[in-house]
Nucleic acid binder design. Structure first.
Lengths: 148, 148
DNA sequence: TCCATCTATGTGTATATACACCATAATAAA
DNA sequence: TTTATTATGGTGTATATACACATAGATGGA
């Protein structure tokens, strides 16, 4: 009859389990991505830019549910490598538009097979059905700031 | 018939969705924990120590699926606040045993209601059934290094 | 027009994370 | 017992993350 306590018990902390799983999973992707000299977070940014094209810092940060200033710091090493071109917006002088360079596009495409390897191992490990369910759940979690 | 591509598509990257959700969820917990001056990661460590008692750095790091050296850095601010006592092991001179101090125990107990608030809002948002399913899934993810 | 406000971005600071490398102590092999 | 290996832990360096604060440009009302 004390079943209710389960989810208010600390080992059931959503945040704890999420961060712990994140560490395990990111370590997995990073290990496989190592030969590309790209970290998983960097590969993510390059891939998104390759997809959606030019964006402002604020737009991209909102999409990533990431603090603006965090993104600014994350862009630094990619910019230093010449993977990004950051150009001032013509209509709004405050805004800076981020886009992939050819070098960045090439790096993303070079890294793609490594990502696919890491991802497919994940799917095998979890099962395709569980993986889809998990992603749906995670996507809902990512919107929590809109409601709370 | 191209259904198979779904899970190898970048928006379905397990790592990307996991990190994005982690940011959203940790921001939620951190916002509610703010009055306690504890970050969610710090609350986690205090809570675990309150539970399992004295442990070595390596043991705790393994439990957290965290690099040893990361944990070393994470312990620093807690030690500075006097929440932890770190004493050398008697039998093994290399090892250091980490334990909560009374001050640390008090801080954990003071923060507990804030955590419960954050957690219960999470459960309401996700639904109890989904939350349990999610946690089961995350716990499995946390073990991937044992298999891959 | 002028000023108050809002918006886009960056810096300073602190913590979180992991890898490469180093030092020391315990343990096993020769 | 001596040496090689393994285990425990820390530092240096780099990236990831977010908050408080500062700056500059856009916007709207007086």
């Amino acid at each position: 009859m004390d079943e209710k306590i389960t989810l208010t018990d600390c080992p059931d902390c959503v945040n704890f389990n999420l961060r712990k799983a994140m560490r395990a999973v990111s370590q997995h992707y990073d290990k496989i991505l190592a030969p590309t000299k790209l970290r998983c977070t960097q590969f993510t940014i390059l891939t998104i830019l390759n997809r959606i094209g030019t964006v402002s810092v604020t737009e991209l940060a909102e999409y990533l549910v990431m603090d603006r200033t965090t993104l600014t710091r994350n862009l630094k090493p990619l910019e230093k490598e010449g993977y990004l071109s950051i150009i001032p917006d013509v209509t709004d002088k405050r805004s800076r538009r981020i886009a992939l360079t050819n070098k960045g596009k090439a790096a993303q495409e070079m890294a793609m097979p490594y990502w696919q390897q890491a991802q497919s191992e994940m799917v095998v490990f979890m099962g395709e059905r569980n993986t889809k369910q998990l992603i749906t759940c995670l996507q809902q979690l990512s919107t929590i700031h809109q409601f709370l």
